[in-house]
């Protein structure tokens, strides 16, 4: 083995050490080890380059890394009960099961396409909770005007302000919020029942009856009910 060959062996050994024994990288370790062993046992660098090209060993490393990354992220999101955020990771894993890649560029593009599609789905999934939580103060203002104990003489004025607030809320929702959201997500429908799922519910750190009441208030505010 000449000196340059030895230098390349040392380089691939360093790459292997970066992932060896790391439980996040079982597939990567196997792929990098295969590359390292191929280089170590090659009679010379020219023979190694031919084997690298024929067996697509670098592509196998890239595929393995993508698989390990997606597995780790999917496991975390499953544990955190974030099924939508786990979606793109599981889609990438399904892709790797169903398609063999022979070049890194195709792999990058296929993964990028999945990530792009899911970015929109994640954004759509999180639209309602962010709007809803952001509207709580308006909902409290409305409830205050309706329920606070004030002299009768003020009731008409306060009820008128409530009606106006709701009219504005419904108009804004129908004429702006919904159409604007649908420009990005044409199928978008607010899913209030979905707010009870862990990923959304945890973002409203208050008791269930309060959330229940505010959901009803919000639907009315937007003119849905």
């Amino acid at each position: 083995m000449d000196q340059r060959h030895q230098e390349y062996v040392a380089y691939y050994e360093a790459r292997l050490r970066n992932v060896a024994g790391n439980p996040l990288y079982p597939h990567t370790e196997a792929a990098v080890r295969a590359l390292y062993e191929a280089l170590r046992s090659a009679p010379n660098l020219e023979a190694f380059r031919e084997q690298l090209e024929q067996e697509k060993l670098e592509v196998a490393c890239a595929v393995a890394r993508v698989r390990d990354q997606a597995s780790a992220r999917a496991a975390l999101y499953d544990e955190l009960e974030e099924p939508v955020r786990a979606g793109p990771e599981k889609a990438v894993l399904a892709l790797l099961e169903s398609r063999a890649f022979t070049d890194v560029q195709s792999l990058t593009e296929a993964v990028g396409a999945i990530e792009g599609e899911w970015r929109q789905r994640i954004a759509a999934d999180e639209t309602l909770i962010e709007e809803f939580w952001g509207d709580w103060k308006i909902l409290e203002d409305i409830e205050e005007s309706e329920q606070a104990v004030v002299p009768h003489a003020w009731h008409p004025e306060r009820l008128e302000s409530v009606a106006k607030e709701r009219r504005t809320g419904a108009e804004h929702y129908q004429q702006q919020t919904l159409p604007e959201t649908r420009k990005f997500f044409p199928e978008y429908q607010p899913d209030y029942q979905g707010l009870w799922e862990v990923r959304h519910r945890r973002k409203m750190p208050l008791a269930d009856p309060i959330v229940q009441r505010r959901i009803a208030c919000h639907r009315r505010y937007r003119g849905i009910d």
Partner: peptide
């Protein structure tokens, strides 16, 4: 309005 309604608003 503030004098007469705010007590109720504070209570709420």
């Amino acid at each position: 309005r503030t004098k007469e309604c705010t007590p109720g608003d504070v209570g709420y």
